[in-house]
Design a protein around this nucleic acid. Sequence first.
DNA 1: GATTTCACGTA
DNA 2: CGTACGTGAAATCC
Length: 544
Amino acid sequence: MVVATDGRTTVADDDGVRHYASPADLHTAEQLDSVRLVWWSARDVRALVEVLSVQRCWDLAAVNRLIHGGARDDAGAVWAVAHAMTVPPPPRESPRTTAPDLFALDNSCAAPIRPWEQLPPGAGSATWLAEPDNREQWARAALHVSRLQAQILHERSPGLQSAYSESGAAWLCIELSAEGLPVDRPVLETLIESAAGPRPLDEADALRIRRQRDGSVWRHTPRGREVDLRNPSAVREMLRQSGIVVEDTRAWHLEPYRAGSPLVDALLTWRKAERIATTYGWHWLDRFVGPDDRLRGEWEASDGGAGRMTAGSGLHSLPTPLRPGVAAADGHVLVRADLGQIEPRVLAVVARDRALAQATRQDDLYAGVAAELGVERPTAKIAMLAAMYGQTSGTAGQALARLERAYPVAMGYLQQAALQGEQGEDVFTYGGRRVPVTANPDDQLATMRARGRFTRNAVVQGAAAELFKAWALTVRSAVRPMGGRVVLCLHDELLVHVPEAHGEAAAAAVDQALDDAARRWSGGAPVRFVSDTSVIRRWSEAKP
DNA sequence: GATTTCACGTA
DNA sequence: CGTACGTGAAATCC
């Protein structure tokens, strides 16, 4: 067992107690590679990212989110869920005075913890952990909870694989936050300037630039009125005066009027520029891009819904026009890899549909599905997406019926998930994540249907996230000896930053990692996954 | 001052 | 009445 707090590092195991001056000293003195490290939350030990390359870990918070679903992962919830007790109300956000650096090793300390019924008040807080005896108890409790969690997961398929993967992903999130995404600052500045105007010198200058941007629309307004473009109801009224009556002013609703109305065209163009100016403008650059030209944000290993990774600082919604600004550092390249048609392929695995599995043998899955259904490829694609998203309107109807006949197992799986959701029952992903739904007895039919669409999609989206994490973690390990680092995870796409001498080798490793991860994750199901992988300098570079 | 609505970026 | 997320501006609710 290792306890490390406030810069002092204490190691306690069956051989006794040892002290180290720093985590770095701990790292050189202890064999940490051969064990699975256990911690309450990767966030608590993020300082270790500087000194330690974690091989295997167990993250109580991440595993709790897997077991229980949702986003609760504070110690009180983790403890309660592991002990099958009622989850207490969420704690008031109490800022830690110091971050606890504390973890346990899974193979060295079998001693039972002091038998707490409930978590002691204040347990895990910085002040509570200042007491040496509490530090030891806290590490022992972590070990204890990890074993309770493992017991719970042993009763779910597929055992502990998801717990390992979710824990690894939580640590990868710490690494992603620390590493950052390499950017080409001059290019980024040029792109921002072309959309948002030059960097303002002061407040008045910013206002002037803003008015200038608004002016591009005002030139087309009735009588040149200076309408507040950021006020949707004012915009709607302005459009009404121009003879355009719409429910709301969303882009997809205005698009049909674009060709016939210079005003609408100017407005929609303004919206694009305004988006970059406000969300991805100078302020964003100054806030999130460090002096080392790395774009950094906070990462979450699993969101509150189906369990996908999320990222802040706009990392997951960077507008395409800005992507030339994401570029490898000098002497480095990026390996870009994105999974082709991951959701229907994942569906073939989780539903165990042999016919759909057959279709995954093709590089272009939808071509195979189209042939099977006897429809055009675009129709097949829309029908498959409609089935996975729960779309019932539109033109997917007839192809959807053929889909039911061709892939009854997969469609039945989706329908079952939707039915459970409608009834207010939680669903479980292939990897064993509980996806909670909230239901009331007096819910309207529309609410129930919406819940059905959510769960229908969650079992696919969530399973895809699980495969993706297994892949990303395999890639992480494979490229590390080459000095490669995963720098972006985007649902079905990976960016790896690597010294240019190893670009091709890293690309090969990424593809090999997909084979390995998919085989492990799917239990050897006859389902093929494909990656479009290329070695590039800039994220925007076309696929080969 | 905190929360909700609208809008839009990504997958 | 296709799913999920994060972000910002304005409106709305205390």
